[in-house]
Structures are given as C-alpha cells and as structure tokens.
C-alpha cells in the first residue's frame, strides 16, 4: 500500500481497515498521520455538536427594510417625493439657521449698543445696578424698576 492512499482511506472510512493496520504498524510517518487525523476528526465531531446561533428578533423585517433601501429603482413618483423631501430638509435647515442667528444677534451687542457688548466681554460678572444712568445706555432706563438686578457691568454707564 502506498502512503499517499492511507489518508484517503482513513478519512473515508474505507473498508480496507486491515490493510491499513498492517501498513501503520510498519510506517512511522503514516502512523503519526493517522493519530493526527483521529485528533482532527474528534475535534470536528466536537465542532459539529456546537449549537448554531439563531437569528435575533426582527431579523426578517430588518432584512426586508435593507432590501427595500438597497434595491430602490427610483420611479417617477418616488423621485417627486424625494425632491419634496429634499426641499423640506433645506427649508428646515434654513429656518434653524435663522433661529440661531436671531438668538445670537442680541447677545453680540451691535443692535443694542456697541459699548455694552464690549463691556460684557470684559467684565462678565453680575452686578447690582444702583446708578440709574447705567440703564440709560440702551434707552430703556426709565421703564426699569429702580432696584432691579440686571446682568450688566456696573461701570457701563460711566463711559
């Protein structure tokens, strides 16, 4: 028997088992191979008995969604909605931008008065206003109650 056949015969469980036994008894290389093969086989048997993981909940709906997304051929009515959708996104973004600007502008000063903005940056502490002239900076002074607490620098009015 040729050494090259031994593995095939071993692996396929050939009925020529006796022939093999005789060969293995005389051929150290094949005997080592046979031992290695038996180890591998035992290992494969163990792997075969391992449980196979199962699909998680929602597997099929998830797949169907992916399928719908990946194979969208974009017929006319969909491209219409796509356009509308895009416009909607752009206009929302624009509105958000405007809202941000509207929030940012009064704080940055120029619309109120250039001085107050600068001073707010220099001295950002909360001060109790006692001097009525401070409140005149933006011309609102007369409407404010006398002892109110306002976030503004105390020195504002001195300039």
């Amino acid at each position: 028997m040729r050494c090259d056949h031994v593995l095939e015969i071993l692996a396929e469980g050939d009925p020529r088992a006796r022939e093999i036994k005789e060969h293995l008894a005389q051929c150290p290389a094949c005997a080592a191979r046979a031992r290695a093969w038996r180890l591998a086989q035992a290992g494969f048997r163990e792997l075969a008995s391992e449980p196979v993981p199962e699909a998680s909940v929602g597997f099929t709906p998830r797949l169907m969604r992916r399928l719908a997304e990946s194979s969208r051929p974009a017929p006319a009515e969909q491209s219409f909605f796509e356009k509308v959708g895009r416009r909607f996104v752009y206009s929302t973004l624009m509105l958000a931008l405007l809202a941000l600007l509207a929030l940012a502008v009064p704080r940055s000063g120029p619309l109120r008065s250039p001085n107050s903005a600068e001073l707010m940056l220099m001295q950002p502490s909360v001060a109790t206003l006692q001097d009525e002239s401070v409140l005149n900076v933006d011309g609102l002074g007369s409407h404010w109650p006398h002892n109110s607490t306002v976030t503004a620098p105390a020195a504002g009015g001195q300039r």
């Binding site: 293995l24 008894a25 051929c27 150290p28 005997a31 080592a32 046979a34 031992r35 290695a36 180890l39």
Partner: peptide, 9 residues
C-alpha cells in the same frame, strides 16, 4: 504528534 513510533510499537 511524533512520528518515529509506529502505532503498534
């Protein structure tokens, strides 16, 4: 797996 020892030896 060491060669050198036939299975029956």
């Amino acid at each position: 797996v060491r060669p050198g020892e036939p299975a029956g030896a």
